[in-house]
C-alpha cells in the first residue's frame, strides 16, 4: 500500500490500483453520509477530482493521485457511506483504476510514501 500527503491510499495488483482515503483522513472528515464516486470508464489524470465526500458539516474533494481509467467503483458506499469511517483502508475503498501498464508499487510515482514514511509524515503534522 502507498500513501499520499493528501491522505489517500493506493494498492496495486497487476495493472489495477485500488484507491481510498486513510484512517487519518476518515477521522478528519467525520461521519461520512454520502460519497460521490466517478463514472466507470472515466479517464483520470493526477490532480483530477476522484470523489466528493460529504459529512454532516461539509463536502470535501478527493483528488486522483495517479493516471488511469475507472473500471470499478465501490457500490457499497452508495447504501453505506459509513464504511469510509468504519473501514477506511479496506471495505471503504472508493474506486479501482486500470493503469496504462502493469507494474509494482515501487514503480509508482516516487512522491508516494510507504506506510512507515506515511506514519512519520502524520507524526509531523
Amino acid at each position: 500500500m502507498r500513501f499520499t500527503k493528501d491522505h489517500e491510499w493506493l494498492s496495486l495488483d497487476g495493472d489495477i490500483v485500488t484507491l481510498g482515503v486513510t484512517a487519518y483522513a476518515a477521522q478528519q472528515l467525520g461521519d461520512v453520509v454520502f460519497v460521490e464516486l466517478p463514472e466507470i470508464g472515466k479517464k483520470l489524470n493526477p490532480g483530477d477530482p476522484l470523489a466528493v465526500v460529504e459529512s454532516v458539516k461539509a463536502a470535501s474533494d478527493v483528488y486522483c493521485p495517479i493516471a488511469g481509467e475507472v473500471v470499478e467503483i465501490n457500490q457499497n458506499l452508495v447504501s453505506s457511506p459509513d464504511f469510509v469511517n468504519a473501514s477506511p483502508e479496506a471495505a471503504g475503498w472508493f474506486a479501482k483504476l486500470k493503469l496504462a501498464k502493469a507494474g509494482s508499487e515501487a514503480d509508482l510515482d516516487p512522491g508516494l510514501m510507504d506506510r512507515a514514511a506515511y506514519e512519520t509524515f502524520l507524526n509531523g503534522l
Binding site: 467525520g30 461521519d31 453520509v33 459529512s55 454532516v56 458539516k57
Partner: peptide, 12 residues
C-alpha cells in the same frame, strides 16, 4: 468546539 470524540451524528 465543533464536535467531541463521538462525532456529529452521535451528538445530534
Amino acid at each position: 468546539p465543533l464536535n467531541y470524540g463521538e462525532g456529529v451524528l452521535a451528538e445530534h
